[in-house]
Nucleic acid binder design. Structure first.
Length: 613
DNA sequence: TTAGGGTTAG
């Protein structure tokens, strides 16, 4: 729709005034951005250009474009044609480029179209805005909207959906919510399923499922009712939050409303059940979808295969691969990755390697994650040389190791005590500009501490603190544990006490580490005082805390206190974990015949409890 | 506009 700017209502002016301040302010950079991108286009071959070509374009001509050179060549041909091809033909070319993920090229061609004064429409506006959003510049997307607006083009529901998605992609959730409210309150467009879907998904992705549910309820009151996608998004996120009952309630609700669940809905539910270790229920749902003639796809099968592998049921997982192939579903990198990880978890590296080779022979290229899985497998088996070989092989296959790859190798090097090599890799990561994350620091601190380099670990911790990098309480847990192992209780205690002053979120693990350390050093009285302190600061002792203190008391000969803690565990429904239980069993012969104590220990025996349940 | 794999810490 093209209208005279003067005729555009006050409602629109208010909208543009509100949303453009940021985009307009950067207009200088915006034009610079466009001119720098267009220069790359000038380099492409123009040899196929024919100024006098009168050839018209067949329907769907753009779908034949295979690469950037062909697209640029065709574009040059088009702008020189007289008369010019229709705006629809330019649309098709740009749309094809979006499908080829050539976002910068779209922006650059748009600039050329502006320079050549080629007429444009809303479709081109949306394509260009989308390109800016996909290169992470939603602000320029708003600027483009302003430019089109000035020439009388009005945004539609697709424009707003694109901008909303761009805002969510850049984590500008507050702005996205603001825009959504404006769209609804000021009726800027009639929201459709797609627009609602973007908002629901964006909210879910930041963990705000409750607001997403409110949007779904709001849809029910309007013209555009919730569909299978809005329901599936909510269901998936409830499953990810381990709220399976709530997810099932939404599932039931959608079925009752006559909205048919699809393969995505079922896959999410099956994934949720697998994550909860409820394999039988997952298989029940799988059979249910078959009954309703909803065909499981490669994603559904990969979820099940992964679930089976994580439970160690690798033979069943292999069987599932056979079934999917029989049903015409081709395993992909995810499927093979799940299978490989299953073998790695069991330390069956030869079989994991065979899966790796099998996927290559099937024409499925290994990706970064595939390498990370197998490298991790070798590291865990202390086969660091094989892991390093694969690590070095990655660039030859066109794959750039990422932070996870480096973290895995770092851990592997520490496992075999190669601290110098680990430190070298850590330095290289920094020199290469590789992003360091919470895992990198955790692995470094743990590796250094465990290999007897507590001073280096402490220096690294100071460096992390000084650089104001993301601090995690787990860093301190690692160091406290290391100090306690070395019998440096004064230093551990001092560090522990500073955590409260630093305003760090001291958790159960920190307390458990400190209590465990004190017990191992025979400082039982202090350990018990610390446990009592947990309740005072509302960081309540867990099952693990009680396991630690019971074992500590028994080892320290404080049977009466051990009994008291065992009774407390019973009241709270806690069990002895298998390692504590076997440690206690070893102690028992020297404990004489305290029947009450023995009875309490037996009562909290996890194996007997499991058998009786 | 919806679904799947990999790295730390008691």
């Amino acid at each position: 729709m093209k209208r005279n700017v003067c005729a555009i209502s006050f409602r629109w002016r208010a909208f543009f005034f509100f949303f453009f301040s940021a985009g307009e302010a950067e207009k200088g950079f915006f034009s610079q951005f466009l001119s720098s991108s267009s220069s790359s286009v000038q380099c492409h071959s123009l040899s196929n250009c024919s100024q006098s070509s009168k050839k018209r374009f067949e329907h769907g001509f753009a779908n034949n474009i295979k690469n950037v050179d062909e697209a640029v060549s065709l574009f040059r041909q088009m702008v020189r044609m007289k008369p010019l091809p229709s705006v629809i033909e330019f649309n098709q070319l740009l749309d094809r480029l979006i499908k080829l993920k050539q976002y910068l090229l779209v922006i650059s061609l748009y600039k050329d179209m502006c320079d050549s004064r080629i007429p444009m429409n809303e479709f081109i506006m949306n394509v260009v805005i989308n390109s800016f959003c996909l290169v992470g510049r939603v602000d320029f997307g708003f600027s483009v909207l302003g430019i089109f607006f000035k020439s009388g083009h009005l945004p539609d529901v697709i424009t707003f959906s694109t901008l909303l998605r761009g805002l969510f992609r850049q984590n500008r959730v507050g702005d996205a919510q603001e825009l959504f409210k404006k769209i609804v309150n000021e009726k800027l467009c009639e929201p459709n399923e797609v627009l609602y879907g973007i908002v629901i998904d964006g909210l879910c992705k930041i963990g705000n499922t409750s607001t997403a549910i409110k949007i779904l309820r709001f849809m029910e009151s309007g013209r555009c009712k919730p569909d299978v996608i809005s329901y599936s998004t909510i269901i998936d996120n409830l499953c990810k939050d381990r709220m399976h009952d709530e997810a099932l309630a939404f599932f039931k609700e959608m079925v009752e409303k006559g909205i048919a669940p699809n393969v995505v809905t079922y896959s999410s539910l099956i994934h949720g059940l697998c994550n909860l270790g409820k394999r039988e229920e997952a298989m029940k749902l799988f059979n249910e979808m078959l009954k309703f003639k909803i065909s499981p796809n490669v994603v559904t099968f990969s979820i099940l295969i992964d679930g089976l592998c994580k439970e160690g049921e690798i033979e069943e997982a292999e069987l599932m691969v056979k079934i999917m192939i029989q049903r015409g579903e081709k395993p992909d990198a995810f499927t093979y990755g799940a299978l490989m990880d299953g073998y790695c978890l069991q330390g069956r590296m030869e079989e994991a390697r065979r899966v790796f080779d099998r996927m290559v022979s099937q024409g499925v290229g290994p990706n970064i994650q595939t390498y990370n899985i197998i490298i991790n497998g070798y590291c865990k088996k202390r086969k660091i040389d094989t892991a390093m070989h694969l690590f070095r092989e990655m660039p030859q296959k066109g794959l750039k190791p990422n932070t996870v790859t480096c973290n895995t190798i770092l851990q592997g090097l520490f496992y075999v005590g190669r601290c110098v090599d680990a430190q070298e890799l850590f330095n290289k990561m920094q020199n290469d500009g590789q992003k360091l994350d919470i895992y990198t620091h955790g692995i470094m601190l743990h590796g250094l501490t465990n290999n007897g380099h507590i001073d280096e670990a402490l220096s690294l911790l100071t460096m992390i603190e000084n650089n104001e990098q993301h601090l995690s309480i787990s860093f301190y847990n690692i160091i406290i544990q290391g100090l306690c192992k070395l019998g440096k209780f004064d230093e551990a205690r001092a560090l522990f006490n500073t955590l409260f002053l630093k305003g760090l979120d001291v958790d159960k693990i920190t307390f458990n580490t400190m209590i465990s350390g004190l017990c191992s050093g025979g400082l039982l009285k202090e350990a018990k005082e610390l446990l009592a302190k947990m309740g005072e600061i509302a960081c309540y002792p867990s099952e693990v805390t009680y396991n630690i203190i019971v074992e500590g008391c028994l080892k320290g000969g404080e049977d009466a206190d051990a009994l008291m803690y065992l009774e407390e565990m019973d009241r709270r429904g806690f069990l002895l974990n298998s390692s504590t239980f076997s440690n206690i069993l070893d102690l028992l012969p020297s404990k004489g015949k305290d029947h009450i104590l023995l009875k309490a220990i037996q009562k909290l025996n996890p194996i007997e409890k499991l058998a009786s349940s």
